[in-house]
Simulated assay, not measured.
Amino acid sequence: MPKGILDVLTVLYALRYAALEPMSRFGMPVLDGGRHRLNAGDEAKESLETVLGRTTATLRVRTYLEEEGSGRHRWPMRLWLTADRRHFPVRFEAHAPLGRIPLELRRIRTDAPSNPQSGLEWH
Rank of each mutant, 00 (worst) to 15 (best):
G41S: 13
G41F: 08
D42K: 02
E43A: 13
A44Y: 05
E46L: 07
E46W: 01
S47Q: 15
S47Y: 12
L48S: 05
L48V: 05
L48E: 03
T50M: 06
V51H: 02
L52G: 04
G53W: 06
R54Q: 14
T55M: 05
T55A: 09
T55H: 01
T56E: 06
T56D: 06
A57Y: 04
L59I: 12
L59P: 00
R60L: 13
V61D: 03
R62A: 14
R62L: 11
T63S: 13
L65P: 00
L65M: 08
L65Y: 02
E66L: 06
E66C: 01
E68N: 07
R72W: 08
W75Y: 09
P76M: 07
M77S: 10
R78Q: 13
L79I: 15
L79V: 14
L79N: 01
W80T: 00
W80H: 02
L81M: 09
L81D: 02
T82A: 07
T82I: 08
A83G: 10
A83L: 09
A83M: 11
D84C: 10
R85D: 14
R86S: 10
H87L: 06
V90F: 03
V90D: 03
R91M: 09
F92H: 05
P97K: 01
L98A: 15
L98Y: 11
L98T: 15
G99D: 11
I101A: 13
P102F: 13
P102R: 15
L103S: 06
E104G: 05
E104F: 03
L105T: 02
L105D: 02
L105N: 04
R106C: 12
I108Y: 03
I108M: 09
I108F: 03
R109T: 11
T110Q: 14
D111Q: 10
A112M: 13
P113D: 08
N115K: 12
P116T: 06
Q117K: 12
S118D: 14
G119W: 03
G119E: 08
G119K: 09
